[in-house]
């Protein structure tokens, strides 16, 4: 049993091919994969749009692409309506875009694209870069704040930071800051870990027992299993991100937290019943 495991596996977490412009660093692979994933989402959307405008009213049988989109959009609208009380014209597209874009971005990683040993993979999940997840979380949380202020008025919105007790002001502020950070890092962590797993599995290839390529066989099997699992993770993370954003919008509009939201709703529901 003279097996040799490579003592050192060459993986470089968080290392990107870089572009430098205006004194700033740009992670090139994140950008091009964002563009690819975004283009896929937008193109699917526009293909559907052209289908819809071409066959408008002549026949109501939806195409498969339409069923896919409608499933996502109608579920999102149900969620938004449950949490915000109405189908908000900004929240629905934001949540749909988050879900679809994150999903495609996560799945891009599944395409094997290591051209040669000098370069990394061409297709890496852009969601494994905090720059993208921070950007999405920032957009979402700013939307949440703006929505909250517009829905309740600036005074009422900022007053809720002092509730239930003024002492809790730091906690309330912290909660508001934790929301985008957890959104961003949860997604980043899951997808980044998936990438590391793939690199580690690839590192198994050099493991041999005598002439038998044990590591190679193991790597193939593990790679298939892991990528399938990672695809499921990709769906779940996309869903969680979009759902949490909708929930944050709902909380910002309705109350001061989950419990209070429910209490308020109950009060709102009960009073008319008693009156009636």
């Amino acid at each position: 049993m003279s097996g040799t495991l490579p003592l050192e596996i060459e993986i470089h977490p968080g290392e990107h091919p870089e572009w430098h412009f205006l004194g700033m660093t740009f992670n090139a692979d994140t950008i091009w994969n964002t563009v690819i994933a975004g283009a896929i989402v937008v193109i699917l959307g526009f293909v559907l749009r052209s289908q819809l405008t071409r066959r408008q009213s002549e026949n109501h049988v939806p195409s498969k692409l339409q069923i896919l989109w409608e499933a996502v959009v109608s579920n999102t609208e149900t969620q938004v309506e449950d949490n915000l009380g109405r189908v908000h014209p900004f929240v629905v597209p934001l949540a749909v875009a988050l879900f679809f874009f994150i999903l495609i971005a996560n799945w891009i990683e599944m395409i094997p694209s290591k051209i040669n040993s000098h370069h990394g993979e061409v297709f890496v999940a852009p969601t494994a870069d905090t720059n993208l997840t921070y950007a999405m979380a920032l957009l979402a949380i700013v939307g949440v704040w703006v929505y909250g202020i517009r829905e309740k008025g600036a005074k009422a919105y900022f007053h809720h930071f002092l509730e239930p007790y003024p002492v809790l002001l730091p906690l309330n502020v912290l909660e508001e800051l934790v929301k985008p950070i957890t959104l961003a890092l949860r997604l980043f962590g899951n997808i980044f870990a998936g990438g590391i797993m793939i690199a580690l599995i690839a590192g198994l290839v050099s493991w041999k027992i005598g002439p038998a390529p044990v590591g190679g066989i193991l790597a193939v099997v593990a790679n298939v299993v892991w990528k399938l699992f990672d695809m499921a993770i990709g769906v779940i993370q996309a869903f969680i991100f979009a759902l949490l954003v909708v929930l944050y919008f709902g909380m910002a509009g309705a109350g001061h937290g989950d419990d209070h939201v429910e209490n308020d709703d109950q009060h709102g529901d009960h009073t008319p019943e008693l009156a009636a």
Binding site: F21, L22, M24, T25, F26, N27, T30, I31, T34, V35, G38, A97, F101, P126, D129, T130, N131, L132, Y134, A135, M136, L138, L139
Partner: peptide, 13 residues
């Protein structure tokens, strides 16, 4: 730590 990519991603998204 975010770098310049952040701005591009924000705009792209």
């Amino acid at each position: 730590v975010p770098n310049g990519t952040f701005i591009v991603e924000l705009i792209a998204f």
